[in-house]
């Protein structure tokens, strides 16, 4: 294939592949009437902001703040807990290869279908009176985010040369001072990358919010989209506006995080 043909082929594939996203943006700016008569057109004939207005007047801000609050808190908890655990796993000698066993168990948890633990988790939340609460959701999200963060941070901590820390240890730096002054700064880019991926996990999570959240004022964006889809048959304009609002942060991150994407989506495993 000569270079020119190759370029054209790749761009055509890319364009075709992105049609659904183009349609999402187009539909958000179509009038409700045009949506039902649009046929195979991707872009609106006349720009309409009806759908944006409708979403703006809805519960948009509650939704966004709920989703941000829950995913951000879940991320903070996970990253802190995982940072200590990952550091211990990388830098300390374990008896009887227990570190491998621990990592294997964490991997198994990350890979298992979350529905497997949903029922006992539901009764646990019930006993702790955490059903239908954001705190409960933050806790439940640890099932996804904590194993992810442990594995992801493992790779970043491994990349820090041991010699730097050994020097610190010889100077008598205590564990927490060593962590704070040596490991933390060196690992900062890794912590940021890991946090962003954990945020994405929380931002997009559906199953546990479906099971644990009932009141409308506590809905997360994915849960709202699900309710919206089943209740308002073809109000696609509003649906796509919400879709865009929920996707924009991710699409911006996609460009920013490119270097870490592979690591993130395969959990730091190469």
């Amino acid at each position: 294939m000569n270079a020119r043909v190759h370029g054209i082929v790749v761009w055509c594939c890319t364009g075709l592949f992105l049609l659904p996203i183009v349609w999402m943006f187009g539909t958000a700016f179509k009038s409700p009437n045009e949506i039902l008569n649009a046929g195979a057109s991707l872009l609106p004939t006349t720009l309409s902001f009806d759908s944006w207005l409708a979403v703006w007047q809805g519960s948009l801000f509650t939704l966004i703040s709920n989703t941000v609050l829950v995913s951000l808190s879940a991320t903070v908890v996970s990253v802190v807990v995982a940072f200590f655990a990952a550091y211990g796993l990388v830098r300390y000698r374990f008896p009887a290869k227990l570190d491998y066993l621990f990592l294997l168990l964490v991997l198994i948890i990350k890979m298992m279908p979350p529905i497997v633990v949903a029922i006992p988790l539901y009764s646990l939340m019930n006993q702790l009176s955490l059903l239908n609460s954001k705190a409960g959701l933050i806790l439940a999200y640890q099932v996804y985010t904590l194993p992810f963060c442990i594995w992801m941070l493992l790779g970043f901590i491994r990349d820090i040369p041991l010699e730097i820390e050994e020097a610190g240890a010889m100077d008598g730096a205590h564990l927490f001072r060593r962590l704070l002054h040596i490991v933390f700064p060196l690992c900062a880019p890794g912590l940021v990358a890991t946090s962003i991926f954990a945020m994405i996990l929380g931002w997009n999570e559906f199953l546990f919010s479906l099971l644990f959240i009932h009141s409308p004022d506590k809905l997360t964006i994915p849960l709202f989209i699900s309710n919206f889809m089943t209740e308002d048959g073809t109000a696609w304009g509003e649906l796509m506006v919400i879709g865009i609002i929920s996707s924009i942060p991710m699409l911006v991150l996609a460009s920013y995080m490119q270097r870490y994407l592979l690591r993130g989506f395969s959990m730091g495993l190469k």
């Binding site: 890319t14 879709g243 996609a254 490119q258």
Partner: peptide
Amino acid sequence: PVIIYPMMISTLVCSSIWRSW
């Protein structure tokens, strides 16, 4: 960066687009 957009938007958004399609 553009070709990986589909995996960056959430499963629910993805499903809402395709259910309409």
